[in-house]
Design a protein around this nucleic acid. Structure first.
Lengths: 195, 195
DNA sequence: ACCGTAACACTAACGGTTAGTTTTTTGAAA
DNA sequence: TTTCAAAAAACTAACCGTTAGTGTTACGGT
């Protein structure tokens, strides 16, 4: 009953994937802004309303699996080795994420994002949501016990690091440089009373 | 000839102001999302195309004088007293900006911004532009001589401080708390070779 | 075999935005 | 004053993303 037995879920997932694949292909072929929603829907052979039942907006077609990013950040906090300090764990994760998105395979997609104003804006507000999740994870960790403001601030800084490093000439070096700054900022926020 | 003699400029500015005033009034009266562009234009007695020749988007109607913010940030850097260190100057400016926008008079507008998704997103991407300007000002100051990455990072942090402090329970205290973190982050970025 | 419902389709519209074109206003030269 | 170029504004008509309203089909449990 509550476990719809397979076929429906698979068909739905297939439809979603077909839409996302078609969209990304068209966007890369002819440019994000030059391809309309009606066109994507037609090419994927679905109705426009169906497309919007799978994706909240045109931009969301491009950032299909953005929940990965959010989960990887929060898990870098909640799932780090016992006793491991926060900042190195986050640096490791950001490093991996930056390496992944500056890899050659991801280059065309990233170029597309940079070239469209609406995609850039969408990504930024997406990152802010991620920063809020990260802040919640940090604030919830009893080993850290920072103020709400300190948690939110560090979370923002970490997400900033991702965005800034990606755009730097040497992304890996930029991650290190920015994380030295984040580390220092974190140090001056002493743990609260019952550390 | 190349100096259009007054009246034209004044009339243009008056039209712009009338549009902005009308828009803000309607937005506050009935809600940002509930008021359409065609309605604003009709009430201001201008054509829709005229409205869009003065403002790039509906959201821009609300953040009419956002260049103030940008200029105040960059001038806090370029116009600070000789020998005055960067971070205190920026903290002072951010303090003033936060105080200004959390004042009672600004409360209705700010509430409106918070209640609309598109306004929130617009503001965030606006702040990023401001951060880039600030980064340029920092990078251009020979007394500071930091790397491009360090400049951009600190600029982001400072703009983050504004956004985060505004939302904090005690905005003034939050500015101080966040700026202690920023100060520490700044310290670890030693000045370059010819300091 | 039957029914509830999840997935999808279709039509039609709404609201922001822009292109294309034409009219009015303005500043200054002739 | 008349004239003229250009700026400002108007008007029309659309484009595009998005949503509401309303069926229709395909599943899955009973």
């Amino acid at each position: 009953m509550t476990v719809p037995s397979g076929r429906r879920e698979r068909k739905k997932a297939a439809t979603r994937q077909k839409i996302a694949d078609t969209a990304l292909r068209l966007f890369l072929e002819r440019g994000y802004d030059a391809v309309g929603i009606r066109e994507v829907a037609a090419e994927a052979d679905v109705a426009v309303t169906t497309l919007f039942s799978h994706f909240a907006s045109k931009e969301a077609l491009v950032f299909e699996q953005d929940e990965d990013f959010e989960q990887r950040l929060t898990r870098a906090v909640t799932g780090r080795a016992p006793g491991e300090p926060l900042i190195p764990a986050l640096r490791r994760e950001i490093r991996a994420l930056v390496r992944h998105c500056t890899a050659d395979a991801a280059a065309p997609v990233w170029h597309m994002v940079e070239s469209s104003r609406s995609l850039r804006e969408y990504e930024e507000s997406m990152r802010l949501r991620h920063a809020e999740s990260l802040a919640a994870a940090i604030a919830a960790d009893p080993d850290l016990s920072r103020t709400a403001t300190a948690s939110r601030t560090i979370a923002r800084f970490v997400v900033d690091a991702y965005t800034l490093a990606r755009e730097a000439a040497d992304p890996e070096a930029a991650v290190d440089e920015i994380f030295r700054m984040i580390e220092a900022a974190w140090e001056v926020t002493g743990p609260g009373p019952r550390a």
